[in-house]
Simulated assay, not measured.
Amino acid sequence: MIGIFDSGVGGLTVVKEIKLLLPEVPIVYFGDTARLPYGNKSRETVRSYSSEIVDFLKKKGCKTIVIACNSASALAADWLREKYPELKIYDVVSSGAEAVAEVTRNKKVGVIGTAATINSSVYKKKIADIDPKIEVFTKACPLFVHLVEENWIRRPETKKIARTYLRELKLKKIDTLLLGCTHYPLLEKIISGIMGRRTRVIASGKKLSQELKKNIPGKKGIEDEYFVSDLTEHFEKLARKILGKNVKIEKVVL
């Protein structure tokens, strides 16, 4: 059983990719909607929240954990691995770094994410570890999370904000742009349209799901479970949009 968590609805984009490759593997999802976003929180706070969620997922029987939140991956992944050596913990940052390194041709890539993720420089470090010749240009786009959570995906204001955020990266002649936040795939059409056909826009969910497929056997007969710390109509609508179906979502207090 795989436990997956994010600060909100964005992690469901990772769930979708995992279920495409591993439809028989049961998952338990937790979205910390009462305390989002994580992108403007301190390292200590993100670690505290993440630990509470991992404890919850452990009690649900999860032995594999996916951190489907870039901010938590950047600030807490290694710390969680040390705290929970009995668990196999995957994170979207490591998968994203590997994905862009495989795809780029001109060795110029962009990464967009929350302030916490970008300020941590974790992507620059991990990509450099894979291929030091790759130039990495980053841009914090903190409003994107709020726009997605408020379901402003098709609003004209969202496109204007995206143009402002992405202007600098367009000038860098990057050929690959990594969506360094799991909320951002919901804005992929807008972002791709602004960046143009010469820039490939990718997310980490597909790469991460491929890694999971190598290591986790299927197991039939157990239903997926979805939990949040605050259940709203917005979350239910976005969950249905992302997953393509209605799912039962329960509110829990950690």
Rank of each mutant, 00 (worst) to 15 (best):
V148Q: 04
M1A: 12
A68H: 07
M195Y: 07
K83Y: 09
V247I: 15
Q210C: 09
K124N: 15
L143N: 03
I112A: 00
H234V: 03
V66F: 09
E98F: 06
K139I: 01
K160L: 12
E211M: 11
L87Y: 13
K126W: 03
I174F: 09
S209N: 00
H146W: 07
K58I: 15
W79E: 11
P26W: 13
P23S: 15
A74V: 06
S71T: 15
G205H: 01
S95D: 11
R154V: 04
K58Q: 11
L208R: 01
I153L: 12
T104K: 06
K172D: 09
A76W: 11
T45C: 00
G221V: 14
I191H: 03
P185K: 02
G3V: 10
E82M: 11
T13E: 10
V28F: 06
S51R: 06
V28E: 07
D78Y: 10
I53A: 03
S95W: 09
E98Q: 09
V228F: 08
P26F: 08
N215W: 06
E98C: 02
L212Y: 08
D78R: 13
G3D: 05
F30R: 02
L166C: 02
A74R: 01
D91G: 12
S50T: 14
L243V: 04
M1E: 15
V46Y: 10
M195K: 01
S51G: 14
G61V: 14
K189S: 14
K88F: 14
K170F: 13
I134Q: 05
V228H: 01
V9H: 09
D224W: 05
S42L: 03
E17T: 03
V103P: 00
M195N: 03
G11K: 01
G39D: 06
Y90K: 05
V103E: 14
N215E: 15
S209K: 02
V148H: 05
K173C: 12
K41D: 15
V109G: 01
V92A: 01
G31R: 04
D224P: 02
G31V: 07
E149A: 06
N70L: 02
E233V: 10
P156L: 06
F227V: 03
S73Q: 09
V148G: 02
T164Y: 12
S42K: 08
S7W: 04
P23D: 14
K173H: 15
K16T: 11
K126F: 08
E223Y: 10
Y90I: 10
V253G: 09
K19I: 14
E44L: 06
P142I: 13
K16W: 06
E168W: 01
S42A: 10
I118V: 15
K59C: 08
R197P: 00
N215G: 04
V122E: 00
A239L: 06
G218W: 11
N40F: 06
E86Q: 13
